[in-house]
């Protein structure tokens, strides 16, 4: 099987380039994932650099652009890919080396939306003797948001994020924002929505849907962003 992999080492290379690799078909089983193939290729070329950890599609560390689509290599079957398999780092963020990108900006946006529960006014601590109860219906509203593993496949496939990576929060951060906006236990819904009311932070989303198409967990960030816009409208009008 043939692979064409993006290579770039800023310490030694002036420009990025693609390197071709060949992997014996006998080494590739029907169930082999791309991460397994990359590990085999790294045995041939120990300098080949990529991130990986759990190998189960849970940690979200091995996002990469495979044949033009952002995917997690650990849950992408090699047998389903067309040859040559062109592998690049996810677009839109700086490359550290080969397939490893600098996700600082991505995490900064996530941090900005304050992705944690704020069930009490500022300065008031939580009463630890009592649980923060939630009805099954309210809990169900969190489905489709909390499962995000922050792999970055969505944000780095979003043209609006490519155009304004420092200002547009991107689908992943906005999905997280939606998760806390709809949480019945959070008391800062209005403040959260007001902080998102900005021509760049939320409203750069042009509903392109690349985020939804690329999410390896099957989530729908685009729908979540539209819901945020609707909620902003409701809170402004009521």
């Amino acid at each position: 099987m043939r692979f064409s992999i993006y290579r770039y080492n800023p310490e030694t290379d002036e420009q990025p380039y693609y390197q071709d690799y060949e992997l014996d078909d006998a080494l590739i089983g029907n169930e082999m994932m791309l991460l397994g193939a990359l590990e085999k290729l790294r045995e041939q070329d120990p300098g080949l650099t990529f991130r990986s950890s759990c190998g189960e599609g849970v940690c979200g560390s091995d996002g990469m652009n495979v044949n033009g689509e952002n995917k997690l290599s650990c849950i992408t079957k090699v047998s389903e890919l067309t040859q040559p398999v062109v592998i690049r780092p996810m677009p839109g963020l700086p490359v550290i080396r080969d397939l490893v990108i600098d996700m600082t900006l991505f995490y900064e946006h996530y941090h900005t939306v304050e992705p944690y529960l704020k069930p009490t006014p500022a300065g008031v601590s939580i009463d630890l003797d009592h649980e923060l109860l939630q009805s099954p219906e309210d809990r169900a509203k969190l489905d489709g948001s909390y499962e995000c593993i922050l792999c970055g496949c969505c944000s780095t496939s979003c043209p609006s994020f490519w155009w304004n990576p420092d200002k547009f929060h991107g689908p992943a951060a906005l999905l997280a924002a939606r998760r806390f906006v709809v949480d019945s236990r959070d008391i800062t819904t209005r403040e959260r929505l007001e902080s998102l009311d900005d021509p760049y932070k939320t409203f750069r989303c042009r509903n392109i849907q690349n985020c939804t198409a690329s999410c390896p967990k099957g989530l729908k960030p685009s729908q979540a962003i539209q819901q945020l816009k609707s909620l902003m409208l409701e809170k402004q009008v009521d």
């Binding site: 009311d197 900005d198 021509p199 409203f203 902003m232 409208l233 402004q236």
Partner: peptide
């Protein structure tokens, strides 16, 4: 305000 930006622009 703000020459129709953000939510107001979306609404209009």
């Amino acid at each position: 305000s703000g020459l129709l930006t953000g939510l107001k622009a979306h609404l209009w």
